[in-house]
Design a protein around this nucleic acid. Sequence first.
DNA 1: CCGCGGGCCTGAGAGC
DNA 2: TGCTCTCAGGCCCGCG
Length: 293
Amino acid sequence: MPELPEVETVRRGLQPAMEGARIVRAETRRADLRFPFQDDFVARLEGQTVAGLGRRAKYLMADLSSGDVLLMHLGMSGSFRVVTVDGHVTPGEFHYPRNEDRAHDHVVFHMSSGAAVVFNDPRRFGYMKIIARSLLDEEPLLKGLGPEPLGNAFDAAMLAAATAGKATSLKAALLDQRVVAGLGNIYVCEALFRSHLSPKRKASTLADKKRAPTDHAKRLVASIHDVLNQAIEAGGSSLRDHRQTSGELGYFQHSFQVYDREGEKCQTRGCGGTVKRFVQNGRSTFWCPTCQK
DNA sequence: CCGCGGGCCTGAGAGC
DNA sequence: TGCTCTCAGGCCCGCG
């Protein structure tokens, strides 16, 4: 499911239930998600207060009073919901991603705020890991990550330097979390469309001979900023699994201009082209060959 | 360094 | 209705 806007939406939804509250009880309802839970997973959570809930790329990070950090990744189909202790969902009734039972509720945090925070993940590509804050810099899951696309470190100069000399395609480079961390298939397709750049273009064309950013790089960075900010504002995109923590859908999918729109007319003014789909690095790319060069 | 295929999982939707 | 097949917001590994 989730790319940066979806994870950020989840973070904002969990904040009121978790920040400043203590984890009274933690339940793991099976032995593993993508990986087995650490042996001391529950023990390191129970009794700890969540000082803050942050995000790095597509990871949620809960700062615990013990000095540990709980790292959470939603994989493809993970979602969180916030439920009050009497079984009623806050604020509205939760609608499961699929109209099924709770078979895929794998982790529950019972908070002193009175809320239960439930992690549901049918495909179980998601995972959780507890890391001592002092070891965060050496954590393999985080170590190679590039800059946050909405952070100060991400700009045209940085992007040009990171892609200079790369033989790979522009699309593959943007999906590479070492280049920039948080984009996925949807928002890469959308950002490339908005900047009129072909997904097939060589990534190295974002830089000139002196490794300085071209106008393409500047356009692309602006498009990435725009599409991510707009998607966050819309509560993310709900195609199959993504839900806000209230169970509500995100609605940015209605604003897609190319993703999942094969065969539709290109929305670029005066273009007249048609949205096409092809497989690139094993993933669907949606684009307009007429106006993306 | 790069692309590709396969794997991890479950479920939805299409086609027959 | 039900089967089979393809595909899915991620990411990792090994091969050539």
